[in-house]
Write a protein that binds this DNA or RNA. Structure first.
Lengths: 208, 208
DNA sequence: ACCTGAACACCGTTCAAGT
DNA sequence: ACCTGAACACCGTTCAAGT
């Protein structure tokens, strides 16, 4: 239906649109080809396999991350990178699983890692501890986005497998905080988390 | 080949074994049935759909999480829960994506959430802030395990899609800390992360 | 109630043929 | 070089038939 000249990037873009609209399961070579108004096998002139298609699609999505100037104040630079990671991830909630599980091996992933390490190093964290600091901060960012993305995806029907439902009276703590589990401000908590992680990482600066 | 009386739990167990050994993609109704020495359709006498099979398999895996006594010292209880989450997740690296992306709606998931909230509440965090504290700590745990699980899964071949390889000289920071990115002690960093999160959460206690 | 084989509507991908 | 339809080896699942 879109009917433009085929190209890897155009195919990745269409795949991304399809996954955003209908979920990862909806991405099939046949359906994507139909969406593009071409024969299924035409896609293989531009993309070697479906796995490569998925990788290319994820790369396209993450390429939207905008990195800060190399001269930006270090902690603010690190925050910007982390905010951008969250922003772009949540533009494509159905891709979050793929994004967080894949090591950053593409060009954009490496550049993002480089920028994050540069910020931490410029902030005064020695090389011997920068990787640890990065992993701590990245753990928070990845986990937060993963948690948050659950709210952006449809609730699956409860499995028939879980046959022994639990009595709510056995879950008093959940009852006590239920409203705070459902209603919460993700933006505020993410910023609070950024500040908390920064506080921890500041303890790793220099001659500590 | 195993050939025991079929049951939902037996099927979940076999599915888990298959996924651990050969990856998520290897889990097909046909292959699982072959593994169990029965006809494909026999599985459907015990499991309504493949999606339910996957949910049941994940539940079986997470049911191995051992929760602390309700009387344990609160911060230690919270650490125990988080350590158990990590331990059990990494027993099944191929399931990590499913575990972290699925909200805890099964009985075991709810009991784990209850135990974590109970620990934080007993540690003195008021109900109005316990959910936020939980999400902060859970973000760290989920993100850390996600990061770590990357090291347990096979490296996919680099996509042909990523055609513009990057010049290593553009990545001086990565070069600088490369050995610390490759060689690191996950146990030590996880414990350090637990302590860091505990420090942050202590700031949320009571009349703050 | 549990198990089975055939069949149906899908997949990704190979191949030979076209332009 | 790019596109195509037929075909192959798979999927999950429905159905009718067995015990």
């Amino acid at each position: 239906l879109t009917k433009v000249a085929l190209s890897p990037d155009g195919i990745f873009r269409a795949a991304l649109r399809l996954v955003d609209a209908a979920g990862l399961d909806a991405l099939t070579m046949r359906r994507l080809a139909t969406e593009l108004g071409v024969a299924t096998m035409s896609l293989y002139s531009h993309v070697p396999t479906k796995d490569d298609l998925v990788v290319g699609m994820v790369d396209l999505a993450t390429r939207e991350i905008r990195l800060p100037e190399a001269t930006a104040e270090p902690w603010e630079a690190w925050k910007t990178i982390t905010r951008e990671f969250r922003r772009v991830s949540l533009l494509h909630p159905n891709l979050v699983g793929l994004i967080v599980l894949r090591p950053p091996r593409g060009a954009q992933g490496l550049r993002t890692l480089e920028a994050a390490l540069d910020a931490l190093r410029r902030a005064g964290i020695p090389a011997s501890r920068a990787a640890s600091a990065y992993r701590l901060a990245a753990s928070f960012a990845i986990g937060f986005v993963t948690l948050e993305s659950r709210f952006f995806r449809p609730v699956e029907p409860t499995a028939a497998a879980d046959v022994t439902p639990i009595d709510p009276s056995e879950l008093p703590r959940i009852g006590e905080v239920a409203r705070y589990l459902v209603d919460w401000d993700a933006d505020v908590e993410f910023e609070a988390g950024l500040d908390a992680m920064m506080g921890v990482m500041r303890g790793l600066v220099d001659g500590d």
